[in-house]
Structures are given as structure tokens and as C-alpha cells.
Design a protein around this nucleic acid. Structure first.
Length: 705
DNA sequence: AAAAAAC
């Protein structure tokens, strides 16, 4: 085929043109070939070659193949297998329907309404009929770009009652929720720390706090000397006076209390709002660990805090963190600003509850994130935005993987029971979490037994930490008495029952989940109302058991080390250990369930003769001094410690089962559960079968070991 | 070495 000559212009003669045209290569649009051969003359193609569409017998089409098919046949006859859009036998472009002009984007590129396959207009939902007003003309709720209803905060779901119908706390204009700069300065919570220095030197305030001169108060405000600038000496003198006064006030605690901001917490730099909230609970003076760590924590430093069990560590890290979060900066969705990591779910709940009043009073938000609880509330409040997260590691990592939380906004991380969180079992999750947190944020590590175990974490994630250790005071150790009771194996169950049968609350620690179940059952069989607590139970049961113990419905809690750390229950008079703890740290934590915050308490180690050595060494390492006594059930030593010989009549199922299992409607389906069988919150780890499915008293074996 | 920590 001659190409266009590049030299002097050659022109075709008419004959040449006519020859060239021929049937071989007709011009586009001329469609010579279309009329060339009548359909009937062509050989019939084998069935397989025909258009599949045509093969479907459509009665409407009659016997003549449609035009396209005819064309294809003609092309095939010519041996022309070029694609349709390259062929020259189609009608002129302008003659063809728009969808055959070959210049529209591929179907997948076209907007849905140009794909030619949408249902008829009347079949389409109203928002797809293309006749609604322009987006900008439509009301906001018809713009189709707001998040799904379930994703929106409650106040944007369009179904709440009118503002005037709602209770005041749902009207969304409470101080904490007003934009930061519209709030009065007093409520902004962004004043620098030094603004929180005690105002004890103000005589007007002092009068008010003392409750004297109540009727003079208004006048006093305008007294000259109340306004007069004070000299440094004046201030110091008045501060000293006020200090002695606060001491007096807290010593004389009891009865309705004045709400005052002038106490030891204010002196540490704790914001007024928090100090006042503390005072409302009668908490006026910080514990040593709080006094030691709060100023550094408020200053933003990394802190390692080691304080006795029951010495108020939760507030030591909680107050400075809350103070920091109360700066008016609202968290973005899914991006909490601070994180408290704890090793057990119960402790997470306790920490969350303990911080609640202070979170509330500062108008910030916090959220418990732990396993065994439903995902939805946790995910929803994360989505909504929350300042402070109190979490167990497993669930938090889970939520990270689900994309429900982004730790990129975390400013403060607290590891409660930090040495435990640095244990092998926790390390993968804890490091995953710490790696997801921005570097350079504040880190607070607390534990009663903070030791070298955290060194690796400290090295990697902390910057110039300051260590505060207050154990030399040995506060809890001294209000606690330690005993080793040596007993022969065949007497161990009876001895345990007698100690547990004492008046008041006791906790019994055993080594394994099976041990817990067995001991709790054996105690009930001897007439002591006891309930087991361990990680093999559903969270429901765990909550109920701990709740019943806290409420006093069950006086004896039998637990694994799940309850060894941090769990606070008032007035536990005795800790009984039927299995020796792993090490001196576990001993201290178990022991620390009693003698909380200055109370008295006894720690009893029940040891078989062969355990004497190991047990003595553990207690020695713990820094305690124990009395070792050989005992028989019912002897003077046991009774002298408050032990009582139990009735020996089994506690009826009807008494203990409802306490532990709750209402039958909420319990497991399919009839009563096997007695004592762990409910299996985590199937892969729960114990396969009941440790004591038969009559418990019919089983031999020692307790423990 | 057990327990804890996610479904």
C-alpha cells in the first residue's frame, strides 16, 4: 500500500482511485460491503461461532440476525478480524448512538448514572432520581456525606427531644463542653501550675473554710485587709498557721466536711478543682508516694514511683495526668490523649472508678478498655473522642488492630504494676503499645515492687526519669503481722477452713485455677461461704464474685494471683496463702490486700513441713518478719488468730449459687452448669473439665502443693 | 512455673 509520497506531490488518476477503492477497503461511512452480499447467500456459520446473544432464541427478533451480527458475518467472510471500532463499515460517528462513539470513558470510569444499566427512574430511590436540588441547596441532613447514624455522636442523631425537653445535663452547654475561650477563666483548667499554689494566706478564705464567721463572710470580702497586698513574711506566717490548721482538720475528720482547697495537695500544685474534689471525700493530706511524685509528674517528667501496697499510687499518677488533660484541648476521634495500662481487668475497672470523680469534675472524659466486655461501647466512645484510656493490654492491641483506636495522640502513658507489665507474658503487647505511642511523651511507671525488671522498658521508652521510692517507711509492713503456720498435709483443709471461718473478710490465695475452684468448694462444703475468682471464669462471673465480696455478701474470696495486685477491698482482715507465692514480690502483693491505708491485718502462710524452707526465704526476701508456728486444727494459735471451727454443714447451693451466677435468665443456657466448672471466658485457655464434678467431700488429696 | 492478657 503506497504511502503518501514525501517528494513532489503525486496525484491519483480517477482510474487509479477507482481501482484502489474496490471492495477490499471501503471508505468509512460508505459502507459498500454492507449491501454487497445478501444475508441469505452467505454460508451459515457453525452454531458455536454465532453470537451467544443470538443463540438465545428471542421470539421478538424473527429469523433475520440483527445488523451487528450480519456485519460480523460479513467481516468474517472477508477475513477481517479487526475490532469493531477499527472497522470502516460503521455508520458515521455522528450517526451512531452516543454509546457507540468510542470516546466515552470505560464503563468502570463513568459515573454510575452513565452506565446504562440503572433501573428506570421510577424504580430508583428518591436520592437517585437526579432531580433533587443542588447539594448546596439541600439541608445539611440531605447532603449524603455525614457519617452513618451509628457513627455520629448522640446529639447529631436527629431523634433526641428538643433542648427544652432535655434534662439540664443533656443540654450540651455545660461549662466543660463550652468552647474553651468562652468559658470563664476559673473553668478553663489551663492556668499554669503555679496558679494553683495554696491560697491559705487569704484570711477571708480561711474564715470560710473554718466555718466560722459565716455571716460575716460577705462583708469580709470587701474588708481592706483582705485586699491589701501581703508581704512575703506575712504570707509565710499565714501559711504556717494554715498548715497547722489543716493538720488539725484532717485529724478531726468525721461528720460533714468543709470543701476546701487549702491542703497538702494544693501545695503540691494539684489544680483547685481536684483539690476540692479530694477534700469532699475527706482526703486532705497526700500519702508519701503522692507527695513525692505529684510535683514531678505535674512538671511533665518521667517518673518511676515505688510505694507500698495500698499507699495511693492510683491518685499519684491519676491526679497529675488529669490535671494535664484538663487544658481545654479536646481529643480527636479515636485519638485518646493519655493511657493507663494495667495487668488485670478488675484492676482496670478499679482504676477507672477511682479516677472517675476527678475526671468528672474537670469535664474531661475517660474510658475503660478491657477484655470480656462488649466491644461496642468501647469502640463508640473511642470514635467520639476520649481523653483518658484505662486499658488492659490484650483488648487495647485488639482495638488497635481493628483500627478503632489510634495511639498517635497519646501524651502520657502510665504503666501501673509496671514490673508485672514488664514480665515475659506481657512484653509483646506492652511493647506493641509503647511503639505505637509518639516518642517524647510523658511516662509514669508505678509499682510496689518496681525493680530491675523494668530496666529494659525504662532504657527504651523513658527520658531522664526521676525515681521516687517510699518503701523505707515500711508503712504497710508494720501494720501487718506475718505468720507461717506449719501443718501436716492431712490437717491442711481443716486448718484452712478454720482460718477462713473467722469473722470478717479474708482472701485466700492459691496457685492455680483448679486449686481455687477446689478450695472454694471444700470451704462451702464445710459451711464457709466462699467464692472463687480466677481468669478462667467469664467476666460476668468475675464481676459478680468480686462485687459480692466487696458488698460483704461473701466473706471469703479464694483467688489466683489475678487478685494479688492492686485490688482494693476495705477491711480485709486476713490474707491466707494455701500455696506459697512464686517469689517475694508476689508475696508482698498478696499480703498487700490486707492492712490497706494504715489498717491492721494478718498475713498467714500455710506451709507443709517440706515447704518451710522456701516459704521462710520468700518472706525474708520480702523484708517481713514472720513467726513460724507448728499448728493443729483448733489449737490455741489458730483460735488466737480469730480462727473458728466452721459448722460443717455445707452451704446450700441456693445460698451461694445466686450470688456467684446471678439471675437465671442471664446465666448460661442449657440447664445448670456443672458445679465449679470454669465458665470459660476464653475457650482456648479455660480448663477442660470440672476440677470437682462429683461430690467435693468425696475427693481426697491435699490442699495446695 | 502459673497466671494474666483478645475474639
Amino acid at each position: 500500500m503506497p504511502k503518501k509520497a514525501s517528494g513532489p506531490k503525486a496525484r491519483w488518476t480517477a482510474a487509479q482511485k477507482a481501482e484502489r477503492k474496490g471492495p477490499k477497503k471501503p471508505h468509512r461511512g460508505q459502507a459498500a460491503s454492507r449491501t454487497e452480499a445478501p444475508a441469505g447467500d452467505r454460508p451459515k456459520r457453525p452454531r458455536a461461532e454465532r453470537s451467544p446473544r443470538w443463540d438465545r432464541e428471542d421470539p421478538r427478533r424473527g429469523s433475520t440476525p440483527p445488523r451487528e451480527d450480519r456485519r460480523r458475518d460479513e467481516r468474517a467472510a472477508r477475513g477481517d478480524d479487526r475490532p469493531a471500532f477499527r472497522r470502516d463499515d460503521r455508520p458515521a460517528r455522528s450517526e451512531r448512538p452516543s454509546y457507540q462513539r468510542d470516546d466515552r470513558p470505560a464503563r468502570s470510569e463513568r459515573p454510575s448514572y452513565q452506565r446504562d444499566d440503572r433501573p428506570a427512574r421510577s424504580e430508583r430511590p428518591s436520592y437517585q432520581r437526579d432531580d433533587r436540588p443542588a447539594r448546596s441547596e439541600r439541608p445539611s441532613y440531605q447532603r449524603d456525606d455525614r457519617p452513618a447514624r451509628s457513627e455520629r455522636p448522640s446529639y447529631q442523631r436527629d431523634d433526641r427531644p428538643a433542648r427544652s425537653e432535655r434534662p439540664p445535663f443533656r443540654r450540651d452547654d455545660r461549662p466543660a463542653h463550652r468552647p474553651h475561650d468562652e468559658r470563664p477563666r476559673r473553668e478553663r483548667g489551663d492556668r499554669p501550675v503555679r496558679d494553683y499554689t495554696p491560697r491559705v494566706a487569704d484570711p477571708v478564705r480561711r474564715d470560710r473554710h473554718e466555718g466560722r464567721h459565716a455571716d460575716r463572710f460577705r462583708d469580709d470580702r470587701f474588708r481592706d485587709d483582705a485586699e491589701r497586698p501581703r508581704s512575703f513574711e506575712d504570707a509565710e506566717a499565714e501559711r504556717a498557721e494554715a498548715d497547722s490548721w489543716t493538720t488539725y482538720r484532717s485529724a478531726a475528720a468525721g461528720g460533714p466536711r468543709e470543701v476546701t482547697a487549702d491542703n497538702g495537695f494544693a501545695a503540691l500544685g494539684v489544680p483547685d478543682l481536684l483539690v476540692e474534689r479530694l477534700a469532699r471525700d475527706g482526703i486532705a493530706e497526700p500519702f508519701p508516694i503522692q507527695a513525692a511524685t505529684i510535683p514531678d509528674a505535674l512538671a511533665g517528667r518521667d517518673v518511676l514511683g515505688r510505694g507500698q501496697t495500698g499507699s495511693g499510687k492510683t491518685l499519684a499518677f491519676g491526679l497529675p495526668t488529669i490535671a494535664r488533660l484538663a487544658d481545654g484541648v479536646r481529643p480527636q476521634p479515636k485519638r485518646p490523649r493519655a493511657l493507663v495500662l494495667v495487668p488485670t481487668r478488675e484492676l482496670a475497672m478499679q482504676v477507672s472508678d477511682a479516677l472517675e470523680p476527678f475526671v468528672h469534675v474537670t469535664g474531661i472524659t475517660h474510658r475503660l478498655v478491657a477484655g470480656g466486655l462488649s466491644y461496642e461501647p468501647q469502640i463508640k466512645s473511642l470514635q467520639k473522642g476520649v481523653h483518658l484510656l484505662v486499658a488492659t493490654p490484650g483488648r487495647l492491641v485488639d482495638l488497635m488492630e481493628r483500627g478503632a483506636v489510634d495511639l498517635g495522640g497519646i501524651e502520657v502513658v502510665i504503666l501501673d504494676e509496671a514490673d508485672h507489665m514488664a514480665d515475659m507474658g506481657f512484653v509483646p503487647e506492652v511493647t506493641a503499645i509503647l511503639a505505637a505511642v509518639p516518642q517524647g511523651g510523658q511516662r509514669l511507671l508505678f509499682s510496689a515492687t518496681l525493680d530491675k525488671g523494668v530496666d529494659a522498658l525504662v532504657e527504651k521508652y523513658l527520658v531522664d526519669p526521676v525515681t521516687h521510692s517510699t518503701d523505707d517507711a515500711q508503712a504497710s509492713i508494720t501494720t501487718m503481722s506475718h505468720h507461717v503456720l506449719l501443718v501436716d498435709p492431712h490437717n491442711k483443709k481443716q486448718l484452712t477452713a478454720e482460718l477462713a471461718g473467722r469473722d470478717g473478710r479474708s482472701v485466700i490465695f492459691a496457685r492455680t485455677q483448679l486449686g481455687v475452684e477446689r478450695i472454694a468448694g471444700e470451704l462451702r462444703d464445710r459451711g464457709v461461704l466462699a467464692a472463687g475468682l480466677h481468669g478462667g471464669l467469664t467476666q460476668n462471673v468475675r464481676n459478680r464474685v468480686l462485687g459480692a465480696f466487696r458488698d460483704g455478701k461473701v466473706p471469703v474470696l479464694v483467688a489466683t494471683d489475678v487478685a494479688a495486685r492492686g485490688i482494693h477491698v476495705d477491711d480485709i482482715g486476713m490474707v491466707i496463702q494455701v500455696d506459697p507465692p512464686t517469689d517475694h514480690k508476689d508475696y508482698l502483693h498478696r499480703a498487700g490486700r490486707t492492712a490497706r491505708a494504715g489498717e491492721q491485718g494478718a498475713v498467714v502462710m500455710i506451709a507443709l513441713p517440706h515447704q518451710r524452707k522456701i516459704v521462710t526465704r520468700i518472706i525474708e526476701n520480702a523484708g517481713a518478719e514472720a513467726q513460724t508456728t507448728r499448728v493443729l486444727p483448733g489449737d490455741a494459735t489458730v483460735l488466737g488468730m480469730g480462727g473458728k471451727v466452721p459448722a460443717g454443714v455445707p452451704v446450700p447451693d441456693s445460698v451461694w449459687r445466686p450470688i456467684i451466677e446471678g439471675s437465671p435468665t442471664k446465666g448460661r443456657r442449657g440447664g445448670p452448669p456443672r458445679r465449679g466448672a470454669p465458665a470459660g471466658g476464653r475457650p482456648q485457655r479455660s480448663q477442660g473439665s470440672s476440677p470437682r464434678s462429683g461430690r467435693p467431700s468425696g475427693r481426697g488429696g491435699r490442699m495446695g502443693a
